[in-house]
Computed example of a mutant assay.
Amino acid sequence: MAKPDNREDNAIHLQQHIDHTVANLQEAEDYLDEHASEISADEKQTIEAKNERRKQSIDSFIAEKQDETQQ
């Protein structure tokens, strides 16, 4: 039998995703600041692109969490 759809903790899980993604974003930004003279232009570009995707993910998680808490 299929497991019932329990959505009660979705907002909590989404907040955990937000927190984790923000932490990764901050860690990457700190790395860029601390090692700016040591990293290649390609590595810097890769990290910056990944951070842009992280920012988009954070925005999506926030919107989804708002939808979950309004239901």
Rank of each mutant, 00 (worst) to 15 (best):
N51S: 11
L32Q: 00
D9Q: 02
E52R: 13
D30T: 13
Q26I: 13
D5H: 12
I58W: 03
M1H: 15
I39M: 01
K44C: 00
A41E: 03
A36L: 04
D19R: 04
D67E: 02
I58K: 00
A23K: 14
L14R: 02
E52N: 14
T46R: 12
I12Q: 01
F61N: 01
Q56S: 14
I58H: 04
I18C: 04
L32Y: 02
T46Y: 13
K55D: 09
N10V: 08
N10L: 07
I18L: 01
E27P: 09
K50W: 12
E34M: 03
I62M: 08
E38N: 05
E68F: 06
N10S: 08
T46Q: 12
A49T: 15
A11T: 02
E34H: 10
A63Y: 04
T21P: 04
S60L: 05
V22M: 08
R7Q: 00
Q45I: 10
E64N: 08
A49R: 05
L32W: 00
P4Q: 03
Y31S: 01
Q71W: 07
T69I: 15
L25R: 11
E8P: 03
D9P: 03
E43K: 07
A28Q: 04
E52T: 15
D33I: 09
D5Q: 13
E29F: 12
Q26F: 14
Q70G: 11
I12D: 04
K3R: 15
I58N: 01
D33K: 11
L32I: 05
S60K: 06
A41P: 03
D30F: 07
A36I: 05
L25Q: 10
T69K: 09
S37R: 07
S40I: 06
H17W: 06
E68W: 02
D33H: 12
I58T: 07
S37D: 14
I47L: 12
E52W: 10
H35Y: 10
